[in-house]
């Protein structure tokens, strides 16, 4: 099977050689499309951030307002990632191991934050937990609003990473451990958690990357108060409007670098896990 597959992948053998104007043209078109829309623009951000040299870059990201925004962003991202790791695992557990009426709907609701536009997510949170809140909770324009908004948009990541792993997990080991007298907590900690860990970490990496860059959900509920509730993406937006493009680019590069780091770290963890499984 594997030999048949690898030989059939050789160029021209699949019978699709001539489509999209033949191989060279296809490759050229794909690369050009990706370059014009994604790669060249992102390169321009990195280039612009370095235009005033290393000291200019450093000065831009250590400017008091920018620094405060970055600190809040990273702090909130860590808090959200930690909460999401626990809550996401718990929700996945309830979805897989529990069964109750309405579970199907409960399961679909998890994807709602993916489908709902971020600005709508922000507005809905503000409607319920803002000034004039019908339930009497007002968290708007405070740092905790950043955390709640980020929890909303990143909800599916850990749940959807852990759920399939939990579904595949055999209960035999757990039953064996229970019959040998292990407590429920011990079973969870020693048997279930190690298996789920790669998935939890993978989902957490996505959560962290998303939290660093989120804009739409955060912009309305935080009220954009410098040094207090202003996150990095909102700060960048302000710098663009104010015309300070080098400063906007420098902070953008910091966000870009750490998002990529989180995602690459996640790939390494998952790659290691897959190899281990084989």
């Amino acid at each position: 099977m594997s030999t048949a597959r690898s030989s059939s992948r050789s160029p021209g053998r699949s019978g699709l050689g001539g489509i999209f104007g033949g191989e060279a043209l296809q490759r050229g078109t794909v690369l050009m499309y990706l370059s014009l829309i994604v790669l060249i623009p992102l390169a321009a951000v990195v280039w612009t951030s370095g235009e005033e040299g290393w000291s200019g870059f450093w000065a831009a990201i250590t400017a008091p307002e920018g620094m405060a925004a970055l600190r809040l962003t990273f702090g909130a991202a860590f808090v959200v990632t930690a909460i999401n790791a626990v809550a996401g695992t718990l929700i996945a557990w309830v979805l897989v191991r529990d069964s109750f009426w309405g579970q199907g709907i409960f399961n679909s609701v998890i994807d709602l934050p993916f489908a709902l536009p971020t600005i709508v997510a922000g507005l809905t949170l503000l409607a319920l937990y803002g000034p004039g809140s019908p339930v009497g909770i007002d968290i708007a324009y405070a740092p905790v609003a950043v955390v709640v908004a980020l929890l909303f948009v990143s909800l599916p990541f850990v749940v959807r990473a852990v759920q399939p792993v939990l579904e595949e997990l055999d209960t035999e080991m757990e039953e064996a451990a229970a019959s040998l007298g292990a407590s429920r907590f011990t079973i969870f900690r020693r048997i279930i958690l190690p298996t789920l860990m790669p998935a939890i970490l993978g989902g957490s990496g996505l959560t962290f990357a998303r939290s660093l860059g989120e804009f739409g959900a955060v912009v309305l509920v935080t009220g954009n108060i410098a040094f207090e509730t202003q996150v990095a993406s909102v700060y960048i937006f302000g710098q663009i409007e104010g015309g300070d493009i080098p400063a906007a680019s420098a902070v953008s590069v910091v966000l870009l670098a750490f998002s990529l780091l989180a995602l690459i770290g996640l790939n390494v963890v998952q790659g290691r896990w897959t190899r281990h499984e084989e």
């Binding site: 992102l42 660093l212 860059g213 804009f215 993406s233 953008s252 966000l255």
Partner: peptide, 28 residues
Amino acid sequence: LSALIDLPLAVSPVVVGLALILVYGTYG
């Protein structure tokens, strides 16, 4: 190439806007 295609998922929306301005804006 596979990693580069996934890149838009890791970029903040505001940075996407900035990136496009820097290339396709009047002074880009």
